[in-house]
Design a protein around this nucleic acid. Structure first.
Lengths: 213, 213
DNA sequence: ATTCATAAAACGAACATTCGTTCTCTTTAT
DNA sequence: ATAAAGAGAACGAATGTTCGTTTTATGAAT
């Protein structure tokens, strides 16, 4: 008698997720039909439903994939810096990584789609939120290294800075996606410049003193 | 014989858009049904279709409304500063305005929804893009005033700064919407602090010199 | 002021279509 | 021989839109 092959199942699942991702990027979660995903993955509806029990679970699987990949970038940046790499060089690399991998119209569309999905679905929101927190804490660790090395202003709160920078990157990704007025090269340069100006130690000015009070 | 009353038509249209907005904020564009909008606006489907010829056109009307309101904030800030108001005070006020009016779960959901909608629908994208450009150019004008007054680093490119700040604000709005770890008070303070650090003139440091090259 | 004719405004049941999912049957690998 | 894997037609619920009908407001005529 025939036995189930877990490896082949895993491969098929990944194929389906990949196909779905392409569809979602092109037409969004709501507009892509199961029929389209089936066509792209060369599988029948009946067969597909042996691997995923709903459209939603395909979306969830895809989101987890993305989150995993983003985390990889952060983890490698953190280990680099912990092994003595130059802080700003590592930051620049991380930003370049983000810009090249996420600053496409498709990825931007995806991000917006994911956010609006998370907004309605509590289970989905939980997962996104936790993923974000994870990235945030890793980024905090990176920034703390920078602060120890005196590349980041001592008076700057790390959690605040991490949130601000991540928000800026996200905002830029979305901006670039739906408004073609910024190139990847500009985005990358602007983000680096922003990080440097925002993070680097400053001489005490009137406004600084006022601000810290 | 009876004649059409353009004023009443306008009022009814606005009622419908208001009702739709509440529905959209709660459940998103795709999930809210025409039936729900009809119920909220106390109107029958047949009657509603005398005012808007599709669900999409209601969404478009609502988006225009939002764009108009955002523009008002920017215009008033610009005129304030042109009439001699303190630059950072005006900026702070503008940021407070944004945080109080847009940093809600509902508005965040809305923003994400609008972006993902713009991503598919070219006509919609055009309108959003133009609105964004308008805001951007007004914001540039505001920043130029600040630069003339020496509150903004001379070496900073204004278009770049405007894009960065707007992206940061957008990113923060979205972040706050789907991840409840930042309060309005923090967001407001962090954004102000960010603007000050990012914009204010800096003493020449090594990294600065390197960056400008 | 009252009545009447007419078109605007509203109603709401019904339509047509779309689409996620299921079910039964066939094929295939072990 | 048997169970996994796949196919694809069909189902049924959901929903944007339409259409025939009814109600209501308005301006002209009495």
């Amino acid at each position: 008698m025939r036995t189930v092959n877990p490896q082949k199942v895993e491969i098929r699942k990944r194929e389906i997720v990949e196909a779905a991702k392409i569809c979602f990027e092109q037409r969004g979660f709501h507009s892509t039909t199961m029929a389209e995903i089936c066509a792209k993955a060369s599988i029948s509806p009946g067969a597909l439903y042996r691997y995923f029990d709903s459209k939603e679970s395909i979306i969830a699987a895809m989101a987890e994939d993305d989150q995993f990949r983003a985390m990889q970038s952060f983890k490698s940046a953190l280990s680099e810096i912990q092994n003595g790499a130059d802080f700003f060089q590592t930051m620049d690399k991380l930003l370049d990584d983000v810009v090249t991998n996420y600053c496409t119209k498709e990825q931007g569309a995806m991000a917006a789609e994911l956010i609006s999905e998370a907004m309605r679905n509590p289970i989905f929101a939980e997962s996104c939120s936790r993923a974000y927190m994870d990235l945030h804490s890793h980024f905090c660790a990176i920034l703390e290294c920078g602060q120890k090395l005196r590349h980041i202003d001592e008076s700057l709160n790390i959690a605040e800075a991490a949130t601000m920078i991540m928000a800026s990157v996200d905002g830029m990704v979305l901006r670039m996606a739906f408004c073609g007025d910024v190139s990847n090269i500009e985005a990358s340069r602007w983000l680096k410049n922003f990080c440097q100006r925002y993070l680097s130690p400053k001489s005490q000015t009137q406004s600084q003193i006022k601000n810290r009070a």
